[in-house]
Design a protein around this nucleic acid. Sequence first.
DNA 1: GCGGAACGGTTGGACGTCATACCTTCGCCC
DNA 2: GGGCGAAGGTATGACGTCCAACCGTTCCGC
Lengths: 167, 167
Amino acid sequence: MPPNTLPFDPIAQARRRWEDEGWGDAAPGMAAVTSIMRTQQLLMRRIDEQLRDLELTFARYELLMLLVFSQRGALPLSGIGSRLQVHPASVTSAVDRLERQGLVRRIPHETDRRTKLAELTAAGRSLALTASERLNRTVFADPGLPPDEVETLNEILRGLRHRAGDF
Amino acid sequence: MPPNTLPFDPIAQARRRWEDEGWGDAAPGMAAVTSIMRTQQLLMRRIDEQLRDLELTFARYELLMLLVFSQRGALPLSGIGSRLQVHPASVTSAVDRLERQGLVRRIPHETDRRTKLAELTAAGRSLALTASERLNRTVFADPGLPPDEVETLNEILRGLRHRAGDF
DNA sequence: GCGGAACGGTTGGACGTCATACCTTCGCCC
DNA sequence: GGGCGAAGGTATGACGTCCAACCGTTCCGC
């Protein structure tokens, strides 16, 4: 991992260059998009670092938590895909790995023979809670922002996601 | 791509479940982190869709733009890595592809024989500008937020990145 | 000066994501 | 009720990211 610290803000610099180039109308949006990308990268590293010794990734953690909160402890793969907004092939791949790890089982749908459900195992449920406890403590409880900015961020991104067709 | 639109905000739902679980102190941060992840996913798709027929990805586009703005049109691979905050292996891989596409050339460093520079070709510079024009028009000029929220977002994320050691 | 530490880059492997193509099963409509 | 399109999953392959290990080069301290 590159824990390098730059001597300046690369995004502010890019924004100035955008303006110099005559792209002033697009400069704020460029900065915002780039900021999101970079922040995601930083957070993802921080999270995966916490999950590494549990042999989980954020993608698989999210999938597990989805099952934990799904009462029956089982969901059709298609449901997982639309809930997490990822490609069907990604779901297949994640469930494959979780199944190999013994955290999830594939079971047939009651009536629809096309559909398969991913069902949480006891080990899967237990590991999901361990991981949650750790992420809550080391990342979510202090994401790196004052509480009022966390809320502002949530509101702004909620609007963006809504307009982007997320929900 | 899953252009699926959910009938509710999945992050708001997750937040409520976090609170029900007794994790209220971590709930806002969890929502913020998850929002960043999901927003990045949406934006990345939107961008890659625009770049696809130029045979570029956002990662390679960023690398090209770095070179465009580097006066000499050339930078050491290590410099690219620390500027974009990506692993050296990722730089090698991106430059490999750009070189195959004829957009970049690897040239030796004047004095340090360990170092290689990635140098923009004429085709690389031209394609970078075409891609910029398109992204400015289709994404950056309207990222999906009102202008004041774009600025607020930029400020909040600037702080987060700073405290995360980005610069 | 010289020997070991640090640096720059590459390689190979793991994982996540997507696109495309394909198979099975379901559902609907004539 | 038969056929055809849609839906659920999977396989394959491309790309991006990281880690761990490695090689050659440079730097530095004794």
